[in-house]
């Protein structure tokens, strides 16, 4: 009966839609809780924010000056009023004013977001290229090649980014002079920072991809492809690779978030402009609105990236649509 199959189709689609809506609602809820949590955390902060605004512990502002600041920034209001104002402004895209730079946080972030975003995306792509390349070349080859491949992945995944960055800088910028030492915003200046972020991540993605690759190579369909006379490269690329990148895709959501936060370190090493510099300065000067702004941005990127990964999965893997 044709009507039954269309009914089933509609039903599954409806169910998928419900799951989708549920996921998006969940994400909105999480983000709301995240903003509340950061707000509360910032207000637990010991010390007087008005003092920070007027120049920190070294300065000796008068009581009148402090009170004026309290009124200007609304510190004299109750916590509830401040929270409502904060949330209202947040919904309108207003993240407040920096205590130190006396500039709107949204402006600061908009100015510095570009380089960090480019760095993060380039690193993610680069690490995928490295991981997939490494897997294709070394997984399930002879014993020594495979051992070398997986050993290298474990080693590389454990490297702290700042140290890797320094090594790359010493070797390729100071000794060999292939790349500019620091500051460059062009393509040449992007190579070393991107490699610094990509190499450890490639180690992580590579480990997962390799595991999956090895088990897929044992599957009957691989054997049947071989008996049909398909060459080794064909089997690897056309059959095994497709399956083995799936778990890596799940990791990518997490990876994007962690890249964004480790970019902070790499930007410091290479003295690169970007959100990292902004965040480190804000953290050390306790410029809370900027810290909250950058933190919220990273949280949004992280959560949305994970949501997208889930959605891609639902589309890519039909098995998930019917399950629970």
């Amino acid at each position: 009966m044709p009507s039954l199959s269309t009914k089933v189709g509609l039903w599954t689609r409806h169910r998928m839609l419900r799951r989708l809506v549920g996921r998006v609602a969940g994400v909105v809820g999480v983000l709301f809780a995240v903003s509340t949590l950061t707000f509360l955390a910032a207000h637990l902060m010991p010390g007087d924010p008005a003092l920070t605004i007027l120049g920190g512990a070294g300065s000796h502002p008068t009581r009148v000056e402090l009170l004026a600041i309290d009124r200007q920034y609304g510190f004299d209001k109750s916590l509830v009023v401040q929270y409502v104002t904060f949330t209202g402004h947040l919904l309108l895209g207003n993240l407040g004013t920096s205590y130190i730079l006396k500039e709107r946080v949204s402006t600061i972030i908009a100015q510095q977001m570009g380089p960090t975003f480019v760095l993060t995306i380039v690193s993610l792509v680069l690490s995928w290229v490295l991981a997939v390349g490494g897997t294709l070349l070394t997984a399930r080859r002879n014993r020594y090649t495979s051992a070398f491949g997986s050993g290298a992945e474990i080693f590389v995944a454990g490297l702290p980014q700042y140290w890797l960055g320094i090594i790359l800088m010493v070797v390729f910028a100071f000794r060999l002079r292939w790349f500019p030492v620091e500051g460059g915003t062009g393509v040449a200046g992007l190579v070393l920072p991107a490699l610094t972020l990509a190499i450890p991540l490639a180690g992580f993605i590579g480990q997962v991809t390799r595991d999956e690759f090895s088990s897929v190579m044992e599957q009957p369909f691989v054997l049947s492809a071989r008996t049909r006379g398909m060459g080794d490269t064909g089997v690897r690329v056309r059959h095994a690779l497709r399956h083995s990148i799936l778990p890596g895709i799940t990791l990518s959501g997490w990876a994007l978030g962690s890249l964004f936060s480790t970019a902070v370190i790499v930007e410091a090493v290479f003295a690169r402009q970007g959100l990292g510099q902004v965040l480190v300065n804000a953290v050390s000067q306790r410029d809370i609105p900027v810290v909250i702004g950058v933190t919220l941005l990273v949280a949004v990127v992280y959560v949305v990236a994970n949501l997208l990964v889930d959605l891609v999965y639902l589309v890519a893997d039909p098995r998930l649509r019917s399950a629970g």
Binding site: V30, A33, G257, S258, V264, V298
Partner: peptide
């Protein structure tokens, strides 16, 4: 909610 922040 805590997982919305990368650990670092």
């Amino acid at each position: 909610v805590l997982f919305a922040f990368p650990g670092l």
